[in-house]
Computed example of a mutant assay.
Amino acid sequence: MNETVTIRLAKQAMKFSAAHFTIFSASERERLHGHNFRVEVDIEAHMLGNGMCFDYGIYKDTVIALCRELNEWMILPTRSPYLQIEEQGEHVIAVFNGQRIPFLRADVLLLPIENVTLEEFAAHFLTRLTADRDELRQHRIRAIEVRVFSGPGQSAGRRLRVDP
């Protein structure tokens, strides 16, 4: 059977709250603020012929776990060309445009992303969900799209098509 189906995962637990600032250029950034982010995942897969495609609970649980990893942190990007990160004992110092912005180390999550944006969060989730390509092929998954929302009507999505 070659029929495909799209499974949408959008559970109440697929959310996280985080503080951040977005960097626009070498000299301009947002003020520190936070959002209650929500995550949805669409998975396109081949039907198995028994009325289902695969046990998508595996991916639901993974997304919920990833949300928990990001929940209640001040998130700083480690790959920004405009932001330097210094660690000094109990503090993390974000250096931007000559300003030193101190945070308690216990409150900061350093992520390997270029900027703290919806686009980068979507890419972060997508990378983590698609790390095991053999598992994706085993589940006959053709594509995965992750969409991250910062509020109603505002989201970004990233999609990966899985090679057969």
Rank of each mutant, 00 (worst) to 15 (best):
E119D: 14
F21C: 12
C67F: 10
S80T: 12
M1L: 08
E40I: 01
A26V: 00
T117P: 09
H20Q: 07
V162R: 00
V41N: 02
S150V: 03
F125H: 11
A156V: 06
G89P: 07
A131Q: 13
G57T: 03
G153K: 07
R79D: 14
F121S: 05
L70M: 12
L118M: 10
L83G: 10
E69A: 13
N50M: 08
L136R: 04
H91F: 13
L83N: 10
M52A: 09
I23W: 04
M1I: 08
R161E: 14
N115V: 09
E40A: 12
F96C: 05
L136V: 11
V95Y: 06
L70E: 11
Q99P: 00
P81I: 04
R159L: 14
T127I: 02
M1T: 10
L118K: 07
S17F: 01
R8Q: 12
A18I: 05
T4A: 04
L129S: 04
E120M: 12
M74F: 13
R128K: 15
E135V: 06
G89R: 14
V116C: 14
D42H: 11
V41H: 00
E44H: 01
S150D: 15
R100G: 05
D107C: 08
R105I: 04
V5M: 14
E28L: 14
E3V: 11
V148S: 06
R158G: 02
A45V: 02
N2I: 03
D42P: 03
I58Y: 15
R159K: 15
M1A: 11
V39Y: 02
D55Q: 01
F125P: 04
E135L: 15
N50V: 02
F103A: 10
E90M: 05
D134G: 10
F103K: 07
I7D: 02
T78Q: 14
R161S: 12
G89D: 14
V146C: 06
S27T: 15
L9V: 03
E120P: 00
S25H: 03
Q84G: 04
A123F: 01
K60P: 02
I58P: 00
F37C: 06
L48W: 04
Q88I: 12
E87P: 00
Q88K: 15
P164Q: 03
G51R: 09
L110T: 09
V39F: 01
R79Y: 11
E44M: 05
D55M: 01
Y82S: 07
R100P: 09
T78D: 12
S17M: 04
H20V: 01
V39G: 01
L109Q: 13
E30H: 10
G34Q: 05
E86A: 13
S27A: 11
Q99M: 12
K11M: 00
Q99K: 13
L129F: 07
V162Q: 00
H124C: 13
